[in-house]
Amino acid sequence: MKIFKIILLPILFSFIALSCKTKVPDGKLTRTDDAAMLFGFLNPDVDTITIALSLAKGVSNKKDKTITIADLEQAEVKLEHKGQSIDLKFLETRSGKYSNNDKQIVIFYTLQSKLPILPGETYTVSAKNNSLFDLKATTTVPSKDFDFDYTISGPFPFDHNYPEYKVNMTIRDPGNGISFLRVVTHVSIKDQDQSYTSYDVAKEVQQESNGIIKYDFSFNADLDNEEKETTLSCINTTESYFRYVTAIKKGAGGGGDPFSEPTSVYTNIEGGYGIFSAFCTKSKKIE
């Protein structure tokens, strides 16, 4: 048996030693170009139209195309509706809240007075920088013909900084214009800058039935604090937005679980990635 082991061990060693990782030589698999991403959510009730661009950096160092933030800033961004086209202006480049500095978006804007956003109408956005990127997307603004009521109960003790409240929403949709909706509770602090606003609950749900939609959810908030104002919003949105958010929630980007299935980032942007959608929002202050 000892001799047997003496013979076997070097073979086992050689097996381990020869098993290896090798760098894949240059080829189609190894080249990962940079791409541009576009985000936009049109809303008839907001004075300003904003479109954001960001980078999707190719993960390898081998690239045929490299795009920088400066390239995004120099993009030509247009919004079109029924033959009318307006240019959006560069506003700023900035990091997101709690984001690392290497995560940046480039924001373009225009005023709605120049191109009104109307429910039921279709709009096309484009963002182009010579041969580096050429993005295009279309969305149709959903109906505003809906309203909602709610009842709230609580507070309930919860293992959290703030107690829990339960909300029962009844959404009336007489025109059957809602296929995809979003519910947001929005807490802001009085007399302070809007940048302190946070979105504690954001749930996207699909329509449950025609006409009346019932939606129940809970959120955590400090409603007794008079310094804070809480708003409940119901948003009629597009299927594209719903699919984008669903993909992000499912872990596009990898949630760290090596056993999870790979998730495609949903996009409706031709020539790149991202989401171009529209919101129609109804909001009520929570008393």
């Binding site: 936009g40 959510f41 924001i107 947001v184 929005h186 809007q194 940048s195 979105y199 919101f279 929002t281």
Partner: peptide
């Protein structure tokens, strides 16, 4: 994303 879809919102 803010309820109004405004991406200039710092939140």
């Amino acid at each position: 994303i803010p309820a109004d879809g405004n991406l200039a919102n710092p939140g």
